[in-house]
Design a protein around this nucleic acid. Sequence first.
DNA 1: CCGACACTTCGCTCCCAGGCGAAGCAACGG
DNA 2: CCGTTGCTTCGCCTGGGAGCGAAGTGTCGG
Lengths: 234, 234
Amino acid sequence: MLADPGRARMVLALGDGRALAATTLAAEAGVAASTASAHLAKLVHAGLVQVERHGRHRYYRLTGSQVGEALEALARLAPAAPVRSLREGTRAHAVRLARTCYDHLAGQLGTAIMGALIDQDVLAGGDATFDSGGSGRDRLSSPGWDCDYQPTDAGRAWMDDFGVKIATGSRRPLIRYCVDWSEQRHHLSGALGAALLTRLTDMGWLRRAPASRAVHVTSDGRAGLATTFGIKAP
Amino acid sequence: MLADPGRARMVLALGDGRALAATTLAAEAGVAASTASAHLAKLVHAGLVQVERHGRHRYYRLTGSQVGEALEALARLAPAAPVRSLREGTRAHAVRLARTCYDHLAGQLGTAIMGALIDQDVLAGGDATFDSGGSGRDRLSSPGWDCDYQPTDAGRAWMDDFGVKIATGSRRPLIRYCVDWSEQRHHLSGALGAALLTRLTDMGWLRRAPASRAVHVTSDGRAGLATTFGIKAP
DNA sequence: CCGACACTTCGCTCCCAGGCGAAGCAACGG
DNA sequence: CCGTTGCTTCGCCTGGGAGCGAAGTGTCGG
């Protein structure tokens, strides 16, 4: 399983425990999406990797620490080759601190804000439920944790107060959440997530990089995030 | 390197640090000698395995403990498959205690006797020298320790006393030694080794198994080996 | 309802790595 | 000196697996 160069690069990219989407892994491995899909299916079948379906994305991560340990043991045997792959793996590090995910915030900042919203009872985390996988259908599915978030009454009031304007007339769900591949936690998506990013940008707390998905925190933002959310911006 | 089934079986057979001959490894892997030779050449080139030439045999062993560690880490990922190979590896265990190597003793008993002969100054271990490998010629060779043993005057007297009769008129060297694959030490070969086995068998201390290379220690032998060599027979 | 996107499945090609047997080389035994 | 044995080299063959593009499925967003 670990012998194929494509699969090896994928597993190396997952080596630090992150959960990455199939397209990302295809790019890391330098193969077509179809090829990557076949490799990932094999890795899942072999039990080295598990998949978490989330919307139209499928996030893959290593099953357990043993996989990473085996990888390190192998890397110790061949110190020369893996270097290039490891450098490629750190490309993602640049956008790990704060970035956009479509139209909302992700990265350490995104997950930190979601945590703050729950701490301050803007959102109430629903009961966590365990999705045991495909129930009856024969589609390939893996078990995983899932849960729902709901806005509280106080939360709705805070949104008005903070100036977060939800676009009305949209059938887009108010609250969604994505698995954050760099943080292994959820970050806020949906209409609220988009409106929050818009508001923070309008207030001049954040500035989106022109070509990249990275997000820059201004000095105003650094202060505001600390007082409003209790977040020490990176 | 470890992905090919044949190579994997070879490396697994070497997993406990033993040094095995090429033919043995070919049998363990279940491939032809030529195939095994190609695999072993690759493993040596990759630095996972090193060779020690000894007479017409070539003993292969793992280069370092890291190889074994990587192997164990991988084995933890796939508990089902390696079982068959591991069982095959333990076939050798039956003849590990005491066996014949052509016409002389090997195994734990063989190395123990050689140790006793040196302790009792029957043999003097020459200076150990480091053979750094092919010097000038382009043949593939690996470095390794080598040393010479010589009989002392007291040793020759002991041989007469004990009844060890060296066949005269033979150009066979008096003392040779083999790398013992189950003990990673030397055992006594050559004319002296052959004569010693003959004498021990004649005295009724040892009995050779009919079909196998295994050697059985009789109760007389158990007592005699203890008093003569200070060896607690297994 | 429709387009965009993420991902999988299918069909096909291509190539390399493993496999063997025969022959060659080196070392031991007598 | 010759036969035997251990191992390597050579030449040829074959199969499996990695690769891609095109088409199909499901989800999101408006």
